[in-house]
Structure formats: structure tokens, C-alpha cells
Design a protein around this nucleic acid. Structure first.
Lengths: 198, 198
DNA sequence: AAGATAAGTAAATGTTTATTTACTTAAAAA
DNA sequence: TTTTTAAGTAAATAAACATTTACTTATCTT
């Protein structure tokens, strides 16, 4: 038996994310990807059944799961509400601003029917995707600290502004007047937090 | 001279939006589109230089400009802040939930480098995209009613949750437990409004 | 009514696509 | 060391792609 070359596997995923970030998902082809990763097209098909399978695994394993871990680093569901919000917001901001290609694919996750379906199925499978956050929100609802909305609705209120701010961070990237600083992120986190408090 | 057949032109745009909503932007091909619109591929190329040109015009003219108009219907920048927020939120919600294909392309606008670039250029050209809302926000900052953030940051705080709720509306579509009702939208609007008040 | 002209079509262009075939190579097991 | 086996490659396949060519048609102008 011959063992898999893990470096090549990593190169394939890294190059795929880069192409998606630079040219868009609609311009990622398997041949372009193979060439960019310095690999034969066949090599990709050893691990992945087809293009859809590759994209779904790239999205779920390489992006969502990594993002999930980054968000809850040093976070505990027992934290004070404002404290927990700050922690998750800063974690997400740091991760995303340093992983532009991952961020690009996350945005596609809300657009592409394929990725969106994969995302929903994963959510259903695990019961709960970001479960420490689920517990965190539930605890604060039960304690009467924040308003009582379904989990989905709560997340829609608490996190999408951050993703939009990250988009703006990249829009202003390399321009001297960068307005999306960590400080602005913290102020925005306070705004969002204030809104949901009872 | 022979005049353009406006019905065919409309059919092309309508079918394009439908294909994008059903199969994703990455699965829209000019030949598939021509067949779906019952038109020769050449017909598309009479009005549009190439695929990129078509997509950009579809996005800007068919989706963004229509969306902009819908949002500010019966809205006046001189409205009370909470009132104006409610009006724009409800307008956007009604428009998007009744125009799923437009919504699908709006989401791609934040993902695809091509569309994102087109969007930014349009923003720059007009100085200001949703300008009644620009004035509305500026007036409320100056009056000390809401917190003073740059326009971009304000919009990131005030509108992305609504788009996320519309996504969830469609996720729950046709399921009996639809949780995203107009009433929930209004409650969420209040949450967002409360956060930004001084 | 005739001619001019742009809108329209069907079919073809050459290219790129996802995926496969036929072959080679590296290393684990014998 | 030899055999086995999956990992890997380069080149090929057939289908789908964006766009064009060569031709037809509808209607405005005269």
C-alpha cells in the first residue's frame, strides 16, 4: 500500500479556497484547481466522488468546522451575556480577517443552493451546529436577561452585522482610511447586545 | 428597422433569475438560459456584450434598482426614527418574500467578486446608493437620536439581520411551523432599533 | 408597395468542462 | 527482496460552454 500524500491534499483545499476568493465559485474548475495545486485531476477524484462532493466537504470540513472552533475559543457558555458576545464577536472577527478565503466561501454558503443545503443538513444532523452558543443563548433567555426569540431568530439578530462588517473590512483593506478596527467591532457588539437585552 | 421584442427581453431576465434561484449562479449557462427563455443564444448577445455584461445588468437594473425603489415606498427621510425603520424593514420584507429569485441574486452580490465589484462601482458612481436612507440616518445622527457611526457601519448594524430573517423565511417556507411572520419581523426591527438609539 | 435595416433564428465554432482510461510509482506486507 | 496495492500521473473522452456565422423575418421609412 501507498500512503496518501497529505501535503497534496492540503494544497488542493488551499488552492480551491484561494481561487474562490479571487475569481468566485463560478470560476472554479477541477482542471484549473488541479493545475494550481500541482496535481493531476485524477488525484482529486481519489478522495472526492465528484465536484459537488468536493465543494461540500471543503465547505463543511475546511471552513465551517474551523470557523466554529475559532468562534468558541476561550468562550464558555456560562459567561456573562455581554462578555460572551464580545468574546465570540472578537474571535470571529480575528479569524475571518485572517482567513479571507474561508470568509469568501462562508458568504457563498448563504447563496449557493448546493452549499446552503449542505449547511442545513449538517445543522440537522448535529442537532445543533454551534452548540456552546446554543446553550449560552438558552441560559440567558431562561434567566430573563435577553428577549425570548427562537434560536434561529436570535442568531439572525446577533451575528449577521459582524459578517457585514468583515465584508467592509476587506472592502477598505489596503486603504489608509480603514474604518473597521477592533475598536469599532467592539462598539458594534455593544449596540447589538443592548438591543437584545430585556 | 425592426423593433425589439420586449417580452422576450423580460423573459430572458426572468428565467435567468429563476435558474439562479433554483440551481445557483454557478449553474447558469447562456445556452441553458436561451433554451429556458425560448430564444436563440444570439438574441441575448444583441442587447448584452457578453455573459459578464448580462449578469451585471441583471443584478443592477433588474434587482438592485427595483429593490431600492421597493424599500423606500411610502418612506420619507423625515419620519420618526423608529417609524422609518419599521417602514423600510416591512417594505424590504414584503418585497423579498415575494421575489425569491431577486433575493437569491442579492445574496450572490455579497459573494461573487464580479457582482460585488459592480455593486461597489454603482455605489461610487451615485455617490450614494439608497440616498433617502442616507439622509434619514444622517438627520438622526445630527439630532442626537442615534449613535454616531459611519454610514457603512450603520447599515451593517441595521439591515443584515433582516436579510438573514428572509433567508430563514424561505428555509421554513411550506413548513407548517413558519416562524418568520410579519409580527416577528416587527419585533426584530424593534430590537435593532433599540440597540442603535443613544 | 419596395427597400433598408436591425431583430431574430438555427446551427456551427473552438474552447473548456467534469470525469475516466491506461499506465507508473512508491511503500507496506509477505 | 518480492509482491501487492492503492496513490499518483498524463493524456483522452464526451458533453457543455460562451460566442459567432450565415441566414431569415418583421417592420419602419420612403
Amino acid at each position: 500500500m501507498r500512503p496518501r500524500n497529505l501535503e497534496k491534499e492540503a494544497a488542493i483545499r488551499t488552492m480551491a479556497l484561494q481561487i474562490i476568493a479571487d475569481e468566485g465559485l463560478e470560476n472554479l474548475s477541477m482542471q484549473k484547481l488541479a493545475k494550481a495545486a500541482n496535481v493531476s485531476p485524477r488525484t482529486i477524484y481519489i478522495k472526492y466522488e465528484n465536484k459537488e462532493d468536493f465543494l461540500v466537504k471543503l465547505f463543511i470540513e475546511e471552513v465551517l468546522e474551523t470557523y466554529e472552533q475559532a468562534i468558541v475559543k476561550n468562550f464558555s457558555p456560562d459567561m456573562d451575556f455581554a462578555e460572551g458576545m464580545k468574546k465570540t464577536w472578537l474571535n470571529a472577527f480575528q479569524y475571518l480577517k485572517n482567513n479571507k478565503p474561508a470568509f469568501a466561501l462562508i458568504r457563498y454558503g448563504k447563496s449557493s443552493p448546493l452549499l446552503n443545503k449542505a449547511y442545513q443538513q449538517k445543522g440537522i444532523k448535529q442537532g445543533d451546529y454551534f452548540s456552546p452558543i446554543h446553550y449560552f443563548l438558552k441560559r440567558n433567555i431562561d434567566a430573563g436577561i435577553i428577549k425570548d426569540f427562537p434560536q434561529d431568530v436570535l442568531r439572525a439578530l446577533l451575528y449577521p452585522p459582524l459578517l457585514e462588517l468583515v465584508s467592509e473590512y476587506f472592502d477598505y483593506e489596503e486603504r489608509p482610511e480603514q474604518i473597521i478596527t477592533e475598536d469599532v467591532i467592539l462598539q458594534c457588539c455593544e449596540v447589538v447586545t443592548k438591543g437584545i437585552l430585556k
